[in-house]
């Protein structure tokens, strides 16, 4: 079996994996990183989105062997030094989650979106999150949270919500 080295949320793992093992199953079943959930099997829902070497990737559509040598950031590694990431805070403040199942993927996808566009319009957020499905919120508060998080990340004044 192929042997891979992968860093997940700052911890380096060496694992022997079946070539067909999906990255999301490596994270969940082998490494116990269950913060990243699975919502579908056709890469439509985005619940399993993680950052792979700094870009968002749906971890159900990446083989573990493809992540060999990569740095993976999941929702569990996002808060630093016990402080929540501004997007996490914004999701909480704007009530952008209900059941919370889509939230890890939604936040990681938003993180990638904000890298490209640090001050997105409402429309840009809606288009940018098209690959992530939520069944609870109707998206209004998710859009607000992403824009609020963007403001906080760039140090701009946060408008009252």
């Amino acid at each position: 079996m192929p042997r891979i080295t992968v860093t997940v949320d700052g911890v380096t793992y060496e694992e022997e994996v079946e070539p067909r093992l999906l990255l999301v199953h490596l994270l969940r079943d082998r490494l116990g990183r269950t913060g990243t959930p699975i919502g579908c099997d056709t890469t439509n829902c985005g619940a399993c989105t993680v950052m792979l070497d700094g870009r968002s990737a749906k971890s159900c559509s990446v083989l573990a062997v493809q992540a060999d040598g990569c740095d993976v950031l999941t929702i569990e590694g996002l808060a630093a030094d016990g402080r929540l990431h501004p997007l996490q805070t914004a999701f909480h403040e704007e009530h952008a989650l209900q059941c919370g199942y889509c939230t890890p993927g939604m936040i990681m996808a938003a993180l990638d979106l904000l890298k490209e566009d640090p001050d997105p319009s409402e429309e840009a957020v809606r288009e940018g999150l098209e690959g992530n499905l939520c069944r609870c919120t109707g998206y209004c508060n998710i859009v607000r949270a992403v824009r609020r998080g963007a403001q906080a990340m760039s140090g701009r004044e946060v408008s009252a919500s």
């Binding site: 929702i75 996002l78 808060a79 996490q88 909480h92 009530h95 919370g100």
Partner: peptide, 20 residues
């Protein structure tokens, strides 16, 4: 703001599929 959120936004969740 919801008490439930702290776990859900940090991935410290307990979905049934997580159980080993």
């Amino acid at each position: 703001r919801r008490k439930e959120d702290a776990r859900l936004i940090t991935g410290r969740t307990q979905w049934t599929d997580n159980i080993q």
